[in-house]
Design a protein around this nucleic acid. Structure first.
Lengths: 217, 217
DNA sequence: CTGGATCCCTCACGATACTG
DNA sequence: CAGTATCGTGAGGGATCCAG
């Protein structure tokens, strides 16, 4: 944000640090792992490059983001969160859940980020609804794909497991949200052609039981 | 914020709703009770009146804030949170705690809001450190005063109790923060003249034990 | 190709003066 | 007390260009 708030207050200080436009969305995308400049640009649906550059520099100065050399040889830099930046996970989750309740149906020109789905899964995971056997799930959403693994009551997403998935779920983002929030049933979604499943219906039902999104308008 | 983010994401939606400058601080001040226009203006350290007007109208359109007629006859309107707006308490607390860790010492021209202290007390209250007997505390800080009451493991602040306070604490905001975060001891603060107490030292120690602010730089 | 830098334009915000 | 009116500034939006 332009000028700071100049208040002796934790919230005001937080907004001084991450209140600028795009800042918290950058942190959101970095919560799922280090990213390159252009990956951030994609996930943020066309943020101007000068603004992205400026935000990254500010976040770096504030100790929230760090630049590192890319592991792959020859390839530029990646941006990652510091420990301090990673502690934004809980505030971001809390805000995300609050905002999710006010999401309407997906608009045609709404952007969809896999990082958003990743965090939604992490935040809505209910370990007590997972059983003993490990599971691997593949989500195919809006031309993107995401793999999740559940084992020992713990969720890892994104997962780099190479096991054969127990279930492949293909649907648009709003259909997925409708399913996980309980506002849409498996049968209705499949019969209307908005959902393709590869795997048993019982596995799908178990999956939906394992995550609970807030329902929205 | 100017134009929305147009993302199908709870966080992005939340920022569409309360990402504009001053918006979240307005909600913060309303979390401690309904306020008039000028009370908000005071607590927000000189936000331009046109901006405050615009924010309040936006927040009202979004279902976060509501205008009501003031109870006292003849006297204008008050602004209050809707149920949906009140659900921002947890995200705001989470952000406030995160930001508190990055607060430096108080700068001379930093503004101090009693609402900020109120929320800090609420958020850092440790009921398991309260004992059976009810207590009333008076805080006098930067020419403002705030009363808190603890009873049955529950904290009420601001409190309208008319009981005689068990302890009166008079100090500047940063001294108070230092005490509650454990970075400053009662003895040091008193001997340096930055803290005046009316009440027993044991009561003061118990008070500090009952709240735990995050420590900062 | 990635990772930006530069330019221009618009509008949100800041400051202040004024009014019902 | 509770805003409205006006005007200046600078952050952000968007396209294009440049360096390794």
């Amino acid at each position: 944000m332009s000028r700071g708030y100049h208040q002796f207050c934790g919230l005001a200080r937080a907004l001084d640090l991450i209140g600028s436009r795009w800042a918290l969305l950058i942190v959101r995308d970095l919560l799922t792992g280090p990213k390159r400049f252009s990956e951030l640009q994609d996930g943020l649906s066309g943020v101007p490059t000068n603004v992205l550059t400026a935000r990254l520099r500010e976040l770096e100065d504030e100790g929230i983001v760090m630049r590192r050399a890319h592991e792959r040889p020859g390839g530029g830099v990646v941006y990652d969160l510091t420990d301090f930046g990673r502690e934004l996970e809980q505030p971001i989750m809390a805000l995300g859940f609050w905002g999710a309740r006010a999401m309407g149906p997906m608009h045609p020109d709404d952007h969809f980020s896999v990082d958003s789905l990743t965090l939604a899964l992490r935040g809505s995971f209910r370990p007590e609804h997972a059983d003993a056997r490990p599971r691997v799930y593949d989500f195919k959403v809006e031309d993107r794909s995401l793999r999740a693994r559940v084992a020992d009551g713990r969720l890892v997403v994104p997962s780099d497991s190479t096991d054969e998935p127990d279930l492949v779920v293909e649907a648009d983002a709003d259909v997925l949200a409708g399913l996980f929030s309980g506002q849409l049933t498996l049968d209705v979604a499949r019969k209307s052609g908005r959902l393709q499943l590869r795997g048993t219906k019982a596995e799908a039902a178990r999956l939906l039981d394992m995550f609970r999104f807030p329902s929205y308008a």
